[in-house]
Design a protein around this nucleic acid. Structure first.
Lengths: 346, 346
DNA sequence: TTGAAAGCGCTAACAT
DNA sequence: ATGTTAGCGCTTTCAA
């Protein structure tokens, strides 16, 4: 039974200094790595500190050094979107790697709430902020963030003042189309949603450019129903009614729409991938991995974007201006191969 | 164009005091509500502060008052589980309501990482901690948390030292069984997973007690395959092979297993709910709302648990010991009715 | 009701 | 390589 240090009496730098027989400056240096401390002294100080159960008070340190070592993470919606967790995890991992803490704040898409939350972040003296949207779109960064180094995730800043990271929508669409083409398909339809924005438009463009490259005729179909899988179903039914000749392959805007296509295909007795091949986007595993057959899909770089954003906003804090980052970074999607693609039979 | 305050020069309590012609003590009181300040003075100080763009530095305040107004959120897995977001959102909302900031920390189930992260939280002087697991199970709280008021989410503390909140697994199972019984079903099977733990065991017990109440014979089937929907599929197939007589209704451990049951039922030409009724647990919307037909399911109180935990851990901080909370709080699930339940035809 | 003064625990100049 | 000293921006006695 080791005697655990009594948590009621807060032990501070002065206690360690006294016990170690050095000045508090030396203790500070021994912990921060700044200044010059002999290896002998450093080790001794750390020993004593460990014995006393001391660790530096980050609040006091922050007050004096004007560095809180806290990164703010502002999100519009951490709850209902399935990807948020991966972005947050990436950010959290990067923060931990740099001995920073991540403060999470959520606005639920309410501008008033958002500016209040950001004010709280500023009052807390956060060193930097990651401003994340859960769907790729344009946003203007709230003025409350003016003084704070900020990096954007899944959104771009029209003013170009802030660095940002987004998925490379075109590459993602080209990759999805390519998989189908390589499997032998020549009749490939893109099922998308009735909405505007960089994700929808970028994927349509990427699809068109790939089809053009292959000398194929692009066909874009959109569903209009509420509900995501329902959109996929509607689009597929529309496809059936429009032409007698169904495509041999479908590239869906995302995995959940692919789920809808599965449902509609099944309803008319078509088997995947024997009768029709399907590719999605997201690699949202509760869907992509659980569908029968497993869905071949292009995974979005959510974790990587979260991680990159914290690294970038921290880099922008450094003196070394060569390390600073700006502009738009586009991250590629990665193909995840499952069983929903086969050569066409027709 | 209003001149925005120059963010480079940090304006502090002394600036406000000088400009307002009062002492810094009065400014402090005017903002904190402590002490006695005339309404006139209070309003004047706030006016001046607003004009100057002042807001109290929470770091300095924390150092002096020994209250950081930060709550730590320790999670084992914020990324891959679909529910995490809702717990975090509940916690974040409660924190914001109490003018607290939420610091998120994630261990990925690595004990070493976890204790490091907790040490960082302690060094940051967090006032309280929420320790959350993403699947209901037993855990021992790491000793690093010893000095800090801690409340548990989705897990219970065998020592009983910490208050905790978990889903009421038995009520959830009883509710699911009841829906089926009320629809007229008398042959109800529970499909579960090959695992131990409060969630699995609690739901089995709840199901058994409901069946006993109705005077019906409980039948519990488990799937063993890897993959969650696959487990549902296997269980259903096992069901088909064991008895010629299929049940008229299935209560699934969760929505993803229900998805597997849908797949297996479809494969043998059975329609839901005409031939067989299905109920899930979770209300994991990307599955429950998107399945065809929509899945009737018992929603788990994730948001509520997150919210409750922050409220509770904050309450335990207060002087008023009557407000303190302890013991295990069980939160009920809520029925979400969709289209997967119909009266039996047999 | 208001103000003066003494720190909270640390870091950063500036000695030595 | 180590130590002395003066704050960081607030809150909190305590006094007026």
């Amino acid at each position: 039974m080791s005697a655990r240090p009594d948590p009621r009496v807060r032990i501070g730098i002065a206690d360690v200094a006294r016990e170690a027989g050095v000045s508090i400056t030396t203790v500070s240096h021994a912990f921060s790595g700044r200044g010059h401390v002999s290896e002998r002294t450093r080790a001794h100080v750390h020993d004593v500190a460990a014995r006393l159960g001391y660790s530096p008070n980050r609040i006091a340190s922050a007050l004096r050094s004007r560095r809180s070592n806290i990164v703010g993470f502002v999100s519009d919606d951490i709850a209902t979107t399935p990807y948020a967790g991966r972005v947050v995890l990436g950010a959290q991992d990067a923060a931990a790697a740099h001995d920073q803490l991540l403060v999470l704040v959520n606005s639920n898409n309410d501008v008033t709430v958002e500016s209040k939350q950001i004010a709280a972040l500023v009052a807390q003296q956060v060193d930097a902020v990651v401003y994340a949207r859960m769907f790729h779109r344009e946003t203007t960064v709230p003025p409350a963030l003016d003084g704070v180094p900020t990096v954007l995730v899944d959104t771009v800043d029209p003013t170009g003042m802030h660095a940002s990271v987004v998925p490379d929508e075109q590459q993602i669409a080209r990759l999805a189309t390519e998989v189908l083409y390589e499997a032998g398909h020549r009749s490939i339809v893109h099922v998308t949603v009735d909405a505007q924005g960089p994700a929808v438009n970028g994927r349509i463009e990427g699809y068109r450019s790939a089809m053009a490259k292959y000398g194929l005729q692009p066909v874009v179909v959109e569903g209009g129903d509420p509900g995501i899988a329902a959109t996929g179903r509607t689009a597929f039914q529309r496809l059936c009614s429009v032409s007698a000749e169904l495509p041999t392959a479908i590239f869906c805007f995302n995995d959940q729409m692919a789920m809808g296509v599965y449902q509609a295909a099944q309803a008319v007795g078509l088997r995947i991938p024997a009768d029709i091949s399907v590719v999605g986007v997201d690699d949202f595993e509760p869907v992509s991995a659980e569908l029968l057959p497993g869905l071949t899909t292009v995974g979005l770089p959510h974790y990587e974007m979260g991680r990159w954003a914290v690294e970038a906003t921290l880099a922008n804090l450094s003196e070394d201006s060569a390390a600073h980052v700006s502009g738009i970074t586009r991250m590629p999607g990665v193909l995840v191969t499952r069983e929903s693609v086969a050569p066409p039979r027709r």
